[in-house]
């Protein structure tokens, strides 16, 4: 009962503290708001870049052309041979007749030429389409497949894929570094602003000590206050994230520049970002308060 009363008092006092020191509270809140907006933008950008790169990565396929005169049994055994290679995710067989059919469907010219081909006449080659679990290892997988019997040619867009992979890796790393740096800067800024807020209340802490408040008694209301500042400060960034991203998504029809670059669907993505913003706001608010209060506590 006593604990609940103390807890209730702390919650009440934290709101009162925010209200009574309104100008400084507003400084902390606006600092949290502005930095969280920047963090939100960085997170949305980074998540979309990651999403885009992983989409592209998924589409990259190794095409294994089989020897012209390969036997049916050898086609099957080759499947198992490819399957034993590390990083192979999926293997799909595409026979030469199927390829010819697709080509004929795509173009009338092809259709007129190829429609007379029988299975034996068809000069195209049977293929296996191989997807890898990790695009970084595509070159070695392709190389290993190349060594297998009955494989005539292996293609996966050599050169271009490697370049793409290295660009994506770079973009990913850069965005991750930017997001982490922003979060750290935010934490630092907020912690310092809250510190100034609490520095102005050292008298209150001094009096609390005098009337017999223990360190924990003193710390808790300020930690709650930091939490409240963090929560209030994250409201506007959350609204901007939810409405802003949803509006952007609708306006751009879910894609950027071309249909290749697809944006992440707003739900539940924007809720996850909002939750993260709230958590960052709360944690940073609490840590900032705690740091500031500790300065005035004789421990």
């Amino acid at each position: 009962m006593k604990t609940f009363r103390i807890l209730g008092r702390n919650i009440r006092d934290s709101f009162r503290g925010v209200w009574r020191n309104l100008s400084l509270s507003l400084a902390s809140i606006s600092c949290i708001t502005i930095t969280l907006i920047v963090v939100s933008i960085a997170m949305i950008l980074s998540a979309n870049v990651n999403n885009f790169t992983s989409q592209i990565e998924k589409d990259v396929t190794i095409v294994v052309f089989l020897d012209q005169n390969i036997e049916e049994d050898d086609i099957d055994s080759l499947y198992y041979d490819i399957d034993t290679i590390q990083y192979v995710e999926s293997i799909t067989f595409k026979g030469k007749d199927e390829i010819a059919g697709e080509m004929m469907e795509a173009s009338e010219t092809y259709d007129s030429i190829m429609s007379n081909w029988t299975h034996e006449d068809n000069p195209l080659q049977d293929t296996y389409l191989v997807k890898v679990t990790d695009i970084d290892h595509i070159a070695e997988v392709a190389k290993e497949i190349g060594y297998l019997e009955n494989v005539s040619v292996v293609k996966y867009g050599e050169g271009m894929v490697e370049e793409l992979v290295s660009i994506f890796d770079m973009i990913k790393n850069v965005t991750i570094v930017i997001v982490i740096a922003l979060i750290l800067v935010t934490a630092f800024l907020i912690a310092n602003t809250i510190k100034i807020t609490i520095d102005s209340r050292r008298r209150e802490i001094e009096i609390m000590r005098l009337v017999g408040a223990s360190n924990i008694n003193i710390k808790i209301p300020f930690i709650f206050e930091g939490l409240v500042l963090g929560v209030i400060g994250s409201i506007i960034p959350i609204i901007i994230t939810c409405y802003g991203y949803a509006a952007l998504y609708t306006r751009l029809h879910g894609q950027l520049f071309s249909s290749i670059i697809k944006l992440i669907v707003p739900e539940p993505f924007m809720y996850n970002v909002s939750l993260l913003l709230l958590v960052i706001g709360m944690v940073v608010g609490m840590v900032g308060s705690l740091r500031a209060v500790k300065k005035y506590l004789k421990i």
Binding site: R209, G212, N215, N217
Partner: peptide, 10 residues
């Protein structure tokens, strides 16, 4: 100790 001063202050 400093952290227990509150006990006497009460």
């Amino acid at each position: 100790p400093n952290r227990k001063v509150y006990k006497i202050r009460r």
